[in-house]
Design a protein around this nucleic acid. Structure first.
Lengths: 200, 200
DNA sequence: ACTCATTATTGAGCCCAGTCAGTTTAATTC
DNA sequence: GAATTAAACTGACTGGGCTCAATAATGAGT
């Protein structure tokens, strides 16, 4: 009866549908009110599922945030990667990668900071968490690639330098003290630090 | 009646005493079982105060951890600062400051990581939190001082470099992925990164 | 000694993330 | 198409951090 076009049973389809509803519900509520102000009950209600069902799709509220935001960060990374290619100066090229990520992070400051918190302190065996770590790894690779372009014989280790850039970004975006700063101020703060890393 | 020796009323003395009992209780319980495994109720019981009273002395459980641990970190900083003075090589001197802090952080991995989490994401207007930030600031100053020793004309900005070192330390100690690493592995990981920062 | 305003303490109870025993639904077998 | 098995779902419940209205302790003024 089922023609080859969809080898998915009703079960799989239902699951996918539910995940979609959850993602949409969480996404909208988080964007409008911020993670802290939204209860898991509200998300479950909006997705039209039982309170317990939510946790079959994301083990914690934090995982839910990662699920919702990962796509945005992946997109930001792609944009930055493309932009960087056209830029000859290494520092400017690195910043071209950094900027979209900071912008993404600052769309909603609380959510952005919570995202970072979950990434560093959450359970890395959870799927959305490991996806987030993969984005970080890709970001570091992209930065390392840019650095590698002009690396001279016996100069710095590009991969390690990229890790340092990553750490700088994390702290600048996450620190409570910087919560009041806008995108530009954060970008500038990061740039000042990274400039010390560049070969001269 | 009250001779000049103690201008404190019964009120102040009681308060101090209670704070001492709370600190002692929290300190022992955290050390033995880890922050996550201890309830605020247990701490209150052990300190022989009401459950609500606890929160008059520390607004959150996280603040309680900062209260208990700040002293250890301050001590570690002092040790490192002293050690660094006798070391001529800049990288080694910086590592002399770094090492005791990592050791302090790794006495109990969960507590160490939670401490860092509270520091970055907690409420900086709370007293113990701001004390923690002050220790970080002092650490950066100590590192900057070491770097300044051999800084040549027009070279790097020591204060900014110290900030970067601070970020590197934070991420290396906090990352879930590194939770399994021992003190030595963390120290080595940090050293590899910092070595790229040093003037060559 | 006795107000009385101020400050400290208390614990019952709120809120909410996350769990689990029980139920429903889908797939499979005969 | 009935029976069986497995997977998915549910919402009442739990545990724990934190609040707040009520209460007690303190000490200044008289």
């Amino acid at each position: 009866m089922p023609v080859g076009s969809q080898p998915l049973g009703r079960r799989e389809r239902n699951k996918q549908q539910k995940l979609d509803r959850i993602t949409a519900a969480a996404s909208e509520l988080f964007a409008e009110y911020g993670v802290e102000e939204v209860t898991t009950q509200q998300i479950a209600d909006k997705a039209d599922i039982g309170a317990g069902t939510l946790f079959l799709y994301a083990k914690t509220k934090g995982e839910l945030l990662l699920l919702v935001q990962n796509a945005h960060y992946a997109e930001a990374l792609e944009r930055g990667r493309a932009d960087a290619e056209a830029i000859p100066d290494a520092l400017d090229a690195v910043m071209a990668i950094v900027r979209p990520i900071v912008e993404c992070n600052r769309v909603q400051v609380d959510n952005g900071r919570t995202y970072l918190r979950e990434m560093v302190f959450g359970d890395p065996t959870e799927p959305h968490h490991s996806a987030a770590l993969s984005i970080v790894a890709q970001t570091e690779e992209a930065i390392a690639a840019v650095l590698g372009r002009e690396e001279l014989a016996g100069a710095r280790d590009a991969a390690t330098t990229a890790r340092i850039v990553s750490a700088i970004m994390f702290v600048s975006m996450a620190a409570s003290v910087n919560a009041v700063l806008g995108t530009e101020a954060i970008v500038q703060d990061i740039r000042t630090q990274i400039s010390l890393l560049m070969p001269r």
